[in-house]
Each structure stands twice: as structure tokens, then as C-alpha cells.
Simulated assay, not measured.
Amino acid sequence: MEDVITEIPPPSRFFEEDLNNFTAPSPTLPTPFIVFSNPKPNLNSPLRPSLLIIAISTPSINLLHHCLSSKPPIGTLMLPEISLSGNSIEPSLKDKSCHIYALDDQNSIIVVIVQFRVVAERSHAVAKLLIDGEAQICPERVLILDSVQSRNFRSNLPPDEELAFKLETTAALMEEQEGLGAQIRSLGFFLSGSVMDGLGAALLGRCQMRRIKGTLCVTWPESGALALSLVKSLLKDVLPSLEHLRVSDVDDDGSRLDSELYT
């Protein structure tokens, strides 16, 4: 006679997906939101910049932070799961933050510096908020600055060479990119078979869905003096103030950044 205590139990009659029905669902994360430093006179009137620049890559964050360090941010994007503990009062490269800057009083060029990692599950929510999100920012043109990772590139990436590519929405392809500068306009397109993911891809997808002229500029390497020089050369036509910024000064601060903060 079989011993029911020591005998190997029969396999479960439930499928794995059926067993998941008995587990409590994961709590829903709060929606990200933007806090403006100076409330807009008309809350129903969105910001309508001619160009919205969104910095995601480490070199673009370093360069734009130094370029805009003397300007107070006009707003901050808050991602509730990102703790503000340890952040300084004044904007710092060591902070986990996402500050929004205006280059002039007319808000014709707005810059967003994303200094925290946005996981894939939250990328679309952040992209929706930054681009025509709840009628707060409605740009005419969007420039996204990201870096390509070796695992997403179809061929080998040389560590001692600088490379740059672009991806564009249909609306951008149909019109001249006069506001982006000659260097970016002359870039070759991202190689077929390579992929982009994360926040940069979500932002470009949002531009495509909203029929906005969007350009995703990706560079290699992901950090270091070569990457800083490359991004500076691409942006100097768009932001002339970068021309007087020394890469050596930026690199000193950039070398202390935590690369895990960025996508």
C-alpha cells in the first residue's frame, strides 16, 4: 500500500496563469506630473515652444546642465517612485531630477534634462506628459538626445570612435529641419536592424502619434570626452552658448556621475 505522506505529490491541476489569479495585483503607481516654478497666468494655455530639447544621454545632460546652470528652472517633472532624498536645493548633476528650462522669456526653446532612470513601464507615461501632455507643453518641433547601447546595435561599436545617427518622424521627414542646425540635418539615419528602446523611443513614438516634427539623435560612445565633444558639435548651431563651454570642465564633473541614473 502506498504511503500518502512520503509519496511524491501529483502535478498541480492548475496552469501557471491560473495560479497567478490567486495573487494580489501589483499596486498602481501614481501618475507623473509637472510642477511649474511660476504658475502660468492662464492654466488652460499650454507652453508652445518652437523647439523642445530633451536630454537623456549622459553627455547631453552634462553639457546642457552647464549651459543652463545660471538659469532657474521653470518647472520640474515629478516621478512619484523617484525619491527626492539627497537632492540639493539648487540643480546639481548629482541629483535625481528632471528640470525644465526656458532659454528666453517667450519660451521659444524649452530644455528638459532627465537626470533619473525611467524604466520601460513608465516611459510612455513620461513621454505623454512631456509632449502635449494634459495641454501643458505643445511643441512645434522636438529634439531628443539619447545614446546607443552596444547590445542594440547591429554591428560592433568601436570604443575609440565617435558616431551619431538620427531617427525622425514622418512630419520631420516631410519638412526641412531648419531649426536643428546643419550638423544634425547632415546625420545619417540609424542603421536598419538596430533598435532603440526606453524613454527616447517612447518620446519619438509620441511625436509620431501627435504628428509632431520629432528627431531622435543618438550618439556613441555613451560617455567620456569623445561623446561630449560630439554632442557639443551637434548642438552648437542650435544653442550658440555651448560654443564657449570647455569640454574639459564638463568632463571633470561628468566623470563622477552614476551611469545607472540614465537610460
Rank of each mutant, 00 (worst) to 15 (best):
M1C: 05
D3S: 06
E7Q: 10
P9A: 09
P10C: 10
P11H: 08
P11M: 10
S12C: 10
S12F: 10
F14T: 04
L19P: 05
L19N: 07
S26L: 11
I34T: 15
I34P: 15
S37W: 02
P39D: 00
P41Q: 05
L43A: 15
N44E: 03
N44T: 08
S45T: 05
P46V: 09
L52C: 08
I53H: 00
I54N: 01
T58V: 08
P59C: 15
P59M: 15
S60K: 08
S60T: 07
I61E: 10
L63K: 07
S69G: 03
P73E: 00
I74G: 13
T76N: 13
P80T: 13
I82P: 09
G86Q: 00
N87D: 07
K96G: 05
I100R: 04
D104K: 07
I109D: 00
I109F: 00
I109S: 04
V112R: 06
V114C: 14
F116M: 12
F116A: 09
V118M: 08
V119R: 13
E121T: 11
S123Y: 14
A125G: 10
K128P: 08
I131Y: 01
E134R: 13
E134N: 14
I137M: 04
S147I: 02
S147E: 04
S150Q: 15
R151F: 15
R154E: 09
S155N: 11
S155R: 08
N156S: 12
P158E: 03
P158S: 10
D160W: 04
A164S: 12
F165Y: 11
F165R: 02
E168A: 12
E176Y: 08
Q177V: 02
E178Y: 14
G181N: 01
A182H: 07
Q183P: 13
Q183M: 07
S186R: 06
F189P: 03
F190T: 00
S192W: 01
G193S: 08
M196W: 01
G198K: 01
G198C: 11
G200F: 11
R210P: 07
K213H: 09
G214L: 02
G214K: 06
G214E: 01
T215V: 15
L216R: 09
V218Y: 06
T219A: 04
T219K: 00
P221I: 10
S223Y: 08
G224Y: 02
V231A: 03
S233R: 11
L239A: 03
P240S: 06
L242E: 02
E243V: 14
H244P: 12
L245F: 05
V250T: 06
D253T: 03
G254H: 02
S259A: 09
